[in-house]
């Protein structure tokens, strides 16, 4: 199995709602395996009601087909392990920022409050405006320093 080529192809599949970050850097790719000439890719959905899952699955298929390595491709969404926001890679966190979205706070502080830096000016002087944003995985915040509204990925962890 040419894992390097497959990963490269998967890196071309972006989150349909945030096109600067790939599903690999989002931490959605759990396993890539081959069984009897069949390529199986197991993906973890970020949120279960996410309407982008079908699009992602189609795009993965397209990218793999374009490699001309496999005739049979199986894309499966699995729930174990559950996707958590700490699966986003360091590079993914940077890519989110470049899109104007603050990456999820790495850890929930003890009080349950978030410490989110503004993706524009880096200030920590921010406030949550709405826990729920335009998509299931994002919240709306406001930067009191540069006075910009911005979005942040919600922290999701099994400890919650």
């Amino acid at each position: 199995m040419n894992e390097e080529m497959i990963l490269k192809a998967l890196h071309k599949v972006k989150d349909p709602e945030i096109d600067s970050i790939s599903i690999v850097d989002l931490g959605m790719v759990e396993t890539i395996k081959e069984e009897e000439n069949r390529l199986i890719i197991e993906l973890l959905p970020t949120f279960m009601g996410c309407p982008a899952l079908d699009i992602i699955s189609e795009n993965v298929k397209k990218q793999i087909i374009s490699l001309h390595l496999y005739h049979h491709i199986d894309i499966q969404f699995i729930h174990t392990p559950p996707w958590t926001s700490n699966r986003i890679t360091e590079r993914g966190r940077e890519q989110l920022k470049s899109f104007g979205i603050a990456p999820p706070p790495a850890q929930l502080s003890e009080s349950g409050d978030w410490e989110v830096s503004c993706p524009y000016c880096g200030s920590q002087y921010t406030a949550i405006e709405n826990l729920f944003g335009p998509t299931a995985c994002r919240s709306i915040l406001y930067c009191k320093s540069c006075k910009n509204p911005f979005e942040a990925m919600k922290p999701i962890s099994t400890l919650m």
Binding site: F47, M48, G49, C50, H79, N130, F132, A136
Partner: peptide
Amino acid sequence: IEEDVAFSSINQDMMGHAAM
């Protein structure tokens, strides 16, 4: 309007849970 956004998001999550 903020509640409209939040509530829609919650409904979408819940529909996702039902689907599961």
